[in-house]
Amino acid sequence: MIYLEGSKDSSSMTAAVRKSNIIEDLQRDILRLEGYKSGNNPAVDGGLGPIRDAFPNASFPLGVLHEFLSDKPEDASATSGFACGLLAKLMGNNGAVLWISSNRKIFPPALRAFGIQPDRFVFIDLQNEREVIWAMDEALKCGALTAVVGETREINFTESRRLQLAAEQSQVTGFILRNNFPKINTTASVSRWRITSLPSESIGELPGIGFPKWRVDLIRIRNGRPGSWDIRWIDGEFQPVPKLIPSAHEEQKQVG
């Protein structure tokens, strides 16, 4: 219950509050029925700051499929950086991640800078993208994993639906990294992200490159509010840059 101070018409206010409470409860019920766990994931949400508010239940959705888009290798690197930051939080001390790819560029020793023990990753290197989708499907059914990352350019709706269902069933989180994707198509993934690198800010008077900084665009999120944020990666933690930029989608929604 919210305590309202100095309310003049207390009876009508309490009624309104009660109504909004009921609506909130119902919304939470709907989310639960849709497969979102109601509990927070403090480990993941910790550093995300304002981005949290975009998620349903204000908590990073686990056991679902997330899609990351990028169209040049520089952004692909930024995307994998952001994804690794999330994975590090997800994995904790005893997680295991399968990284499935047909054209892997990830440099294992660099993962340590993102708070990941690179030896807790198992890399599956396959011949083509169809095998990647098949392997992801198999891996997402294995409840002992923390997350499954798949690198593929293309994925159609049916395939993504299958992966999403597998993820919901096993509560394993799936990440699809689509670098150099041919076209944006409809997929069954719960969210669609786009990460681009931003010029780093110098640390005080020091010359050289500062901490990694990215523009995080949450283009689509089921039952959430898309948005755009600037975020930095400092000493193994996300640190949002306070300024909030309303995304194009948000503006459209307001207009409509």
Binding site: P73, G81, K105, F107, A110, Q117, P118
Partner: peptide, 12 residues
């Protein structure tokens, strides 16, 4: 694992 030197996340 070493963390003292910066290494790129993606290596050609």
């Amino acid at each position: 694992w070493r963390t003292d030197k910066p290494r790129p996340l993606q290596l050609l």
